[in-house]
Amino acid sequence: MSDSAPDRFRSDPTQVETDTRDARISGTDDRFNSKLRQAFGASPFILTKFDQFMNWVRGSSMFMLQFGIACCSIEMMHTYAVKHDLDRFGAGVPRASPRQADVIIVPGTIVSKFAPRMKRVYDQMPEPKFVVGMGSCTISGGPFQEGYNVVKGAEEVIPVDIHVPGCPPRPEALIYGVAKLQERIATGESSPVVVKPYDLEEFGDLDRDEVVDQLAEQIDEDDLVMRYNWADSP
């Protein structure tokens, strides 16, 4: 420790207020100059709109839903784990319950049996909530698009903010997608979301046609159902 050290640490309370601050501001002692301080300048106060502040906070601390579907979830796990470590970006704490999560990453193919469940999980998340579609399957059905059972993209069911293409996307790509989402949230951008929803509705509310008539015996009037009109899918 150098001889000047006693000078840098003031114990006299009247001097602490002036000398230490001066040393910090003039740059002779920048130990307390965090990035945040630098952003704020000499004054520890900042004037901003409450909304902007909230957006910034929201984007800086996002809780992801622990939600694995298919192949992409393996790469998603690698994104959370060592080496890629999504937590570095303030977005790496997976929550097991949708009620504690802000972001749902949809990592895989959505099939007819799973879409109602996914819709239910999405509905259980509190507002505001964001969706990252991971992989080609959530964009269009990907390599499985021509399957008889495959929903042609997550946007048929829930709105998607960010699409990360790939089959599967590399962890770096997912991190980029999440970072982009954080950026958008922080700046308060909202995406124009186009959903062609396969919605959950009561069976009794469906328009009656041949298919509905055939199933009338198996399904109660007030059961929730999702109706897939495959011919209208892209």
Partner: peptide, 26 residues
């Protein structure tokens, strides 16, 4: 593998893939 209300057997020869399907969430 398929929901219990599925209509038709998809790997049979006369399966119509365009046919609408209804899947319940009960």
């Amino acid at each position: 593998l398929l929901p219990e209300t599925w209509q038709g057997h998809p790997l049979s020869l006369d399966y119509d893939q365009e046919r609408p399907q209804i899947v319940p969430l009960r």
